[in-house]
Design a binder for these strands. Structure first.
Lengths: 240, 240
DNA sequence: TCTGTAAAACCTGTATGACTAGTTTCGCAA
DNA sequence: TTGCGAAACTAGTCATACAGGTTTTACAGA
């Protein structure tokens, strides 16, 4: 285990906390730590970096916020597994503060999900196909319960992202779901007839079947169609 | 200005710091704060939430780490503008800890940049076209200086993302550049002849011209070709 | 009345010490 | 050898203090 060097060679960001953050990430890299591995305690770091425990704690909090490390009472900090929590916060903040529009989120999702659908068609396991088909059918079956349909919808898209076997896509799709939960009911209500709603549900089933059949082109095109129709529904409801 | 409620209705995350984070983000939402707007001081929040200043500070650090707020000495915290710093950290951490492969980063970039190229062709201003063409030509002109070519290359892609007018894409492309800086020289060296290198540079010029001409299909296809050839070069260098 | 400036008030960054509560380690006893 | 309990370790939170920025206030001069 390499000792942590206290000097602040990299990073032009000022402040002891920033330096500590750099030192800690360097420690993770230098020792090739993997998710689950433990970091030095606050007391040790505080000594090695010659800063107060306060500074180390704030650095730890910062790293935990971007999900590089996990913190919990009594235990040492550990290297974390990637997840979408931090990214979700950022996206929601962007929308809340009018820096990102709903349409922009939709376009990003469409772009990414056309790809996840194609990759899922190529790479999905049988177990994944069962899950994806299951969510699609659940949407059709429970279509009188909007909330339940929404949750199946979200799970459907996330499962496709997982089947694409690229964690970047999973994280991004996961991060968009907070916003999706806010806009989904609007799209649902703007589809005035049950027929329209079931038509949307049917696209999901067709998409699941394309993935099941291992047809990336069809999967990608169906995903595109799905997003285009959702965009139309939102437009009808006045979402810019 | 609404007062901040101290209760912790939302979020199952335990701990006073997590509660404070929730309370502060709720404050931003409830008061519809925009980038640049000031938050209450640590002392005020500490009083309103009935926690120590330590807790508020750690919450602030967490929010600053995900770039929801800006901190600086003596000044009150302000709502921040979105940028790619936090996302960069996450991506680099994912690669460092073997949770994300270089190929996965490339696929994500390819997916997104095919779209930014198409959108840029549709939406770019004349000023943006000048910048994009400028970067492409700089690559051709300075091609004996690898470092300079790389920086132009990165700036080229980022400018296209900007011209796509979707901040989500800008942030993502920006976030990938840290990794790109690490792998770029490998791809460059694996192109053994100057002819090969200039061929790559020429694709950039053609792409810039497609964007300039307002041809989204061509721009998208050239971007795809560019990534496919880069992937080939990396494959030749043994990057999985 | 308006303006410029200096002092006062305010605010964050960092350090220290203390105490609680959760976790790991280690040695002893069965 | 195993199981258990005490000791050592560790993080969470609080209170306090002070240095060094920043903003506000109030006063003096025009």
């Amino acid at each position: 285990m390499t000792a942590i060097s206290g000097d602040d060679a990299a990073s032009h960001a000022s402040g002891l906390v920033s330096s500590a953050i750099v030192a800690i990430t360097r420690h993770i890299r230098a020792n090739e730590l993997n998710p689950g591995d433990r970091l030095p305690s606050e007391a040790v770091l505080s000594r090695e970096l010659s800063v107060s425990r306060t500074v180390v704690r704030e650095a730890f909090r910062s790293l935990a916020a971007v999900r590089l490390i996990d913190l919990s009472a009594g235990k040492r900090a550990t290297v974390a597994q990637l997840d979408d929590r931090a990214m979700s916060l950022m996206i929601e903040h962007g929308v809340d503060t009018a820096q990102i529009s709903i349409n922009q989120v939709y376009d990003a999702r469409r772009t990414i999900e056309m790809r996840t659908a194609a990759l899922a068609a190529l790479r999905r396991t049988d177990a994944e196909v069962r899950l994806i088909l299951g969510h699609a059918h659940a949407m059709v079956d429970n279509f009188s319960d909007a909330d339940s349909v929404m949750e199946s919808d979200l799970a459907f898209h996330l499962e496709i992202a997982r089947a694409s076997r690229n964690p970047i896509f999973s994280i991004l799709i996961g991060a968009f779901q907070g916003i999706a939960r806010q806009t989904w009911p609007i799209g649902w209500r703007s589809r005035s007839s049950d027929a329209e709603r079931q038509a949307m549900n049917r696209i999901h089933v067709e998409l699941a079947e394309a993935i099941s059949a291992g047809d990336p082109q069809a999967a990608s095109q169906l995903m595109a169609r799905h997003f285009d129709e959702s965009a139309k529904a939102l437009l009808a409801a006045g979402i810019a």
